[in-house]
């Protein structure tokens, strides 16, 4: 394979025709030597589909590392993804205790969370938001953890009410966990016992601001 040393010409063809300095490649991508492991010739055709896809992803990633495509695409795509995610936050239909009444009110005609795009769904597989709205007992721990892990990424957790923040008025109970952040990573805490439904609405708006600012974790990933 011929090469011009460490020249980085844009659009100079595929990896088969250029050779990049091994150290540069390693520094850039984190792999030892992309070119030498890239299959060539008839072995591509006889490789399995998984290997083909793997090779393609590696090649694209290498190429994106050279040409500043990744940051550019992320810069365009991330806000779009973030906007689409914040505009339709689906909350899990899980009401634990008293704060669930105020959570229910937020979906009702007076306060109407749907104008913010927040709707309630029963299956955790389709939800982004887990509202912990009540005290958590030792029996409920595995249930909540399972529900949280069933939700696909990206997901957020709002701890609503004093019981979810720190155990609430049940500080001398033998069965209550002192706060939801013992088992779940909480994004927003809403104090109150119970917090007014307007406070939950405010928290949803703050969550949307947070999603917009931080972007979303699943942007256009290459590799």
């Amino acid at each position: 394979m011929e090469g011009d040393g460490s020249g980085k010409e844009a659009g100079a063809g595929g990896p088969k025709e250029r050779r990049v300095d091994a150290d540069e490649a390693a520094a850039d991508i984190g792999e030892e030597d992309v070119c030498e492991t890239a299959p060539s010739g008839p072995s591509i055709v006889m490789a399995s589909l998984d290997e083909l896809i793997e090779w393609l992803v590696r090649v694209l990633d290498w190429g994106a590392g050279i040409v500043p495509v990744k940051p550019l695409v992320n810069k365009i795509a991330r806000p779009v993804f973030a906007w689409s995610q914040r505009a339709s936050v689906f909350a899990l239909h899980s009401g634990l205790a008293c704060c669930a009444m105020e959570m229910g009110v937020v979906g009702m005609p007076r306060l109407d969370s749907e104008r913010l795009g927040v709707a309630w769904f029963s299956s955790p597989r389709r939800c982004d938001l887990f509202l912990v709205n009540g005290w958590i007992t030792k029996k409920t721990r595995p249930v909540l953890r399972t529900l949280y892990e069933q939700m696909p990424e990206p997901k957020w957790v709002i701890a609503m009410g004093e019981c979810a923040i720190s155990g609430g008025p049940w500080h001398d109970s033998y069965n209550v966990i002192y706060g939801a952040d013992e088992l779940l990573p909480v994004d927003i805490y809403i104090p109150g016992c119970p917090p007014r439904p307007e406070a939950l609405l405010d928290a949803l708006v703050k969550l949307q601001t947070k999603i917009q600012k931080e972007g979303t974790t699943s942007g256009l990933k290459l590799g």
């Binding site: 634990l96 008293c98 009444m101 007992t137 029996k139 008025p169 049940w170 109970s173 069965n175």
Partner: peptide, 28 residues
Amino acid sequence: GYLHRGVEKIAENRTIEKFLPLNDRLCY
């Protein structure tokens, strides 16, 4: 039993005035 706090035991630990607000949370 997923929401068992032992309110009856907590009542033995608190005075009547201090237990009064907890009665609201007995049935939300």
